[in-house]
Each structure stands twice: as structure tokens, then as C-alpha cells.
Amino acid sequence: MEWKRDWNLTTRVLLTGFLLFILYLVFMTILVIFLPGISIWFIIGLAVAMAGIQYFFSDKLVLWSTHARIVAKDEYPELYASVEKLSHEADLPMPKVAIMQSPVPNAFATGRSPRHAVVACTDSILRLLNKDELEAVLAHELSHVKNRDILTMTMASFVAMIASMIMQSFFFTALFGGNNRDNGAGWILVWIASIVVYAISTLLMLALSRYREFAADRGSALMTRNPQALISALGKISGRMEVVPPEAKAKIEGANAFFIIPALSGNTLMELFSTHPPIEKRIAALERISAEIQEY
């Protein structure tokens, strides 16, 4: 079965992006109406700069935060061979390969484009999964690369970054001078609007993140032609995650959006706002894809 776009999923992604764009226009209109003296372009420029740093240095930032290191081919020849084979299947350049020392079995991909991609695994996932299951996980991560999800999420976070900066009302009041301080009512309204916009944009981004996980699962199934391997891998990883000490998961919790399954320690509010769909829904979607493949 060829790599085929899931138009139902694509429609949801496009709709989420459209809603984020409308939210951006509404928020900019509120700023212009209630704070006519504020330098809108300065705020946008600052957000663009932050998004640029996030986009161009995402691979280095994620590797640094997870303590993952780039490894040579002779250090992990079997892992390299699997990534190389799958990259060829997906018509992608060979990414860098990294290993992360952690008892949490997981994997992630990062990088601003296919030519600057990194695929990383924890050492524990290499011991947990068999060859087919590991290849299914690697194919999932390479699907993120093929779908350019880093670019998608960076663009999606733009509205939230602007709203977040506006929420720092005292900082911006001081920064833009006395005229803005005199417009106290305008600042209060904009501050309230920024909270609402930040909350809505965050929920939309979380929805977009969940959609991209479904898309990556589908990409893995089509790339390996073995969705059952990914189903088995997800079951093993989630089962093992339940017995990993919370402190081990807490160390890498900040990078959960990148992992194939989030490592939730149970000590934060992150469990209330998931970046990933429930395992049960992912498995159900993979079962449907398995039926599709069998028809061909």
C-alpha cells in the first residue's frame, strides 16, 4: 500500500490551523483598538525572533534538554541500519542518530527539516522492543520528519507566544512608556483578552499535536506495512512506563511533546493537557489501517 494522505486527518489539521489564524487576526484587532499607542510590530517581531530560535535550534535545544548524544554508526550498527532502511523507504535523507540514557523507554525526532533531522532513542527502548517493534517506532519518528511537524508546531505556537508576552502586562507597560500606562482600562482589557487567547491557542495546539501523532502512526504503518508491530510497541512502552520511577520520568517530562508516548510523572498538571491521543484511540486507528492494508 502506497503512502496515502488521510484526508479526514488533514482536514482537521487544516481546520485547526485556520482557527489559529482567525484567533491571531482577532487578537491583533483587539490590540489595535484598545492600545492604539502600542508598537504592534515590535511585539510581532519579538514573537518572530522567538519562533525563529525555536525553529532553527530545536534539534540542539531538545538534545541538550534530554542529554541525548549523537552516536556514530559503529556504536549502534543495527539501529543505524534500521534508520537507514526506513529513511530510504520514506524517501528521506539519512538523519543523525542519537541515544539518550534513561530508564524511560521512548523515542523522538527533532530538526527543522528532513536535511537537519535527528532521530533519538533511549537505551532502555532498545532493550525492551524486538526488531520489528523498534522499526515501527523509528518509522513513527521519521513520519514526523516527513510531515515537517517541527515547522507546523512552531507556526502554530506563534499566537500563543504573542499572547504570553502580552500577559506580562507590567513588563510591556514599562517597556512602551507613559502613554500606555495612562491607558489603564485598555491594558486591563487587553490583558484579559491575552489570557483567553493564550488558553484557546494552547488548546488548539494540543489538538494539533494529537492529530500529528495519529498522522505519524499512520505513516509508520504504511512505511513498515506492519501496523501490528507499532500496536505491540505502544503496548510495551505504555506498560513499562507504569513501573518507571516518577523521578526518572520527571527528569525528561519537559520534552514530552516530542516523545512517542509522554512520560508523565503524576506530579504536574501536564496530565490534564495531553499532547498525545489516548493509547486506546491510537491502537483503534492502527487496527483500521491494518484492515486497509490487508485489502490491498
Rank of each mutant, 00 (worst) to 15 (best):
V196Q: 04
W187M: 15
P277E: 05
Y296N: 13
Q294A: 15
Q228D: 13
A284K: 13
V32A: 14
H116M: 10
I38N: 02
L92E: 03
I150V: 15
I166K: 01
A263S: 13
M241K: 06
I43S: 00
A156L: 09
L269H: 09
P95L: 02
W187Y: 08
N8P: 01
A291M: 12
D6C: 01
A221S: 13
L175W: 13
I252A: 07
R127E: 14
Y55N: 03
V118S: 11
N8F: 07
G235C: 01
R5W: 05
F158M: 05
I40Q: 10
I283G: 07
D74R: 10
I162Q: 00
T122K: 06
E141D: 00
G52V: 10
I44H: 08
H116N: 14
E133N: 03
A250Y: 12
A72L: 13
L189V: 15
V196W: 09
M241T: 07
C121D: 01
D91T: 08
S238N: 14
M161T: 15
M100F: 08
K281L: 11
S102N: 06
L86K: 03
L128F: 06
P277W: 05
L128I: 09
H276G: 11
T173G: 11
L14P: 00
G17V: 03
N130C: 05
E213R: 05
A285G: 05
T202G: 11
V137G: 03
F21L: 14
E133P: 06
R112N: 10
T16N: 09
V119Q: 02
A193K: 00
M100N: 08
H116K: 15
K60L: 10
G37T: 14
R148W: 13
E89P: 02
S58D: 14
C121M: 09
E78G: 03
P36R: 03
